[in-house]
């Protein structure tokens, strides 16, 4: 029984939150890795693209709520999400046309594009703050829990409860659908295949008649969709605040690099590696351990390796370790 209780506590405080957070990171890292694979630069504006997408979704969610539209028990935000994706896709497409394309044509060094993306980051960050303000916003509605801790306890008779929030369940389901869709697109469709060819060898792809501008445009639309979905899911799960999205840049980049920049499969694996490390290292294990060890050995402290304020230190440490021992990432990325 104790072992079962420990397992439930572990699932409640580590497994479920890390799975949800990992899915959000994976979706973010997929966007970063696609840009790196096709456009060959690290996009510093990605966090703020996520914020923009989430913001549009939030504004529409409010509008729908005001109109009385609802898909309860699911959050209204899911209804607004497609429109958020459209708006974000339009924004990044226009950005590419007005900003990035010039440097692509001039065959500028990748680091130049990184600096340009810093400018785009400023603009998007400013836009988001200008439109919705720098404060946190709440937009989650519908049922809060798939199953609450109390219901679980009553159902199973265990001392520990397992709560699964709707946002966490939705995150997981959405992530699975999106990733399956993305891989189907990349592996099965003509456009997807030409994107992969372009990513592997630009010159060869050009020779075989692939239109680079089309590949780039499709990439941006995909990235906008991924960013908006990731941003909205994160907002539903943890609340929306523009600044947190900028801070997400670090774990997202860590995920993409740990997995191998340019490798979509790596981005997903990296997302979960980072999320699980962050959660396990910043979780206070006392509760789980109490069930597992005899009373005499019961820990006196919280058995928390690092306080949660240092979660970014964890992603950073994993990043550094991977870079030192396996510079191309867990899965072979493009970068050396």
């Amino acid at each position: 029984m104790d072992a079962l209780n420990a397992l439930v506590a572990f699932a409640n405080f580590v497994l479920v939150p890390a799975l949800a957070y990992g899915s959000q990171l994976a979706l973010g890292a997929l966007g970063v890795t696609l840009i790196y694979g096709i456009l060959r630069f690290s996009n510093f504006a990605h966090g703020d693209t996520m914020a923009f997408g989430a913001m549009v979704t939030i504004l529409l969610t409010w509008a729908f709520q005001a109109m009385g539209l609802s898909i309860a028990p699911l959050p209204t935000a899911l209804l607004a999400l497609p429109f958020g994706i459209l708006a974000t896709a339009a924004l990044v497409y226009v950005t590419d046309r007005t900003v990035y394309r010039f440097y692509r044509r001039a065959k500028a060094a990748p680091v130049m594009l990184v600096i340009v993306s810093m400018g785009v980051m400023f603009v998007m960050n400013g836009l988001v703050r200008f439109i919705i303000g720098p404060e946190s916003q709440s937009f989650a509605d519908g049922a809060r829990f798939l199953i609450t801790a109390r219901e679980f306890r009553e159902m199973t008779g265990l001392a520990e409860g397992l709560a699964i929030r709707t946002s966490q369940a939705i995150t997981l389901v959405t992530a699975v659908i999106v990733v399956a869709g993305l891989f189907w697109f990349l592996n099965r469709t003509r456009t997807g295949k030409s994107m992969r060819a372009y990513s592997d060898n630009e010159d060869l792809a050009l020779l075989s008649g692939i239109n680079p501008e089309r590949v780039v445009a499709v990439t941006w639309v995909l990235v906008a969709a991924l960013a908006t979905i990731a941003g909205t899911l994160y907002g539903l799960d943890k609340g929306f605040r523009p600044f947190t999205y900028f801070q997400l840049l670090l774990p997202i980049f860590a995920s993409a690099i740990v997995g191998g920049l340019g490798n979509p499969l790596g981005a997903i694996a990296g997302g979960y590696v980072i999320a699980f490390s962050e959660v396990t290292i910043t979780y206070a294990w006392k509760k789980v351990l109490t069930y597992l060890v005899p009373e005499t050995l019961e820990p006196s402290g919280l058995v928390q390796l690092l306080s949660t304020e240092y979660k970014y230190a964890v992603s950073f440490a994993i990043l550094v370790i991977v870079l030192l021992f396996r510079p191309t990432g867990l899965f072979r990325g493009k970068a050396v």
């Binding site: 630069f41 690290s42 990748p110 680091v111 990184v114 840049l249 670090l250 980049f253 860590a254 690099i257 920049l261 970014y312 230190a313 992603s315 950073f316 990043l319 550094v320 870079l323 970068a335």
Partner: peptide
């Protein structure tokens, strides 16, 4: 880019 991410961290 890696130096950038490392310093950011």
């Amino acid at each position: 880019d890696y130096l950038a991410i490392a310093t950011l961290g």
